[in-house]
């Protein structure tokens, strides 16, 4: 395990906040993408535009 000494708090907090924000952004991006694709596919099917 890496030895962070007296700076363990700041270092872990910096990585924790960064990874948390990046993961939240990735999740939100994928969730919105899937939601929009489903909505569009449904509408295209209803309008007879999609094979």
């Amino acid at each position: 395990m890496v030895e962070l000494g007296k700076y363990a708090g700041p270092v872990l907090a910096a990585y924790g906040v960064s990874l948390g924000l990046v993961l939240a952004l990735v999740w939100l991006t994928l969730w919105k993408s899937r939601k929009m694709r489903r909505k569009l596919e449904t509408l295209e099917r209803e309008m007879g535009l999609h094979g």
């Binding site: 993408s33 929009m36 295209e44």
Partner: peptide, 17 residues
């Protein structure tokens, strides 16, 4: 890239609606 694809789909959805 993913978000732009989502925006393009949203634009097409609005046009079809």
């Amino acid at each position: 890239l993913i978000r732009t694809r989502t925006e393009i789909r949203a634009r097409r959805l609005r046009a079809l609606e």
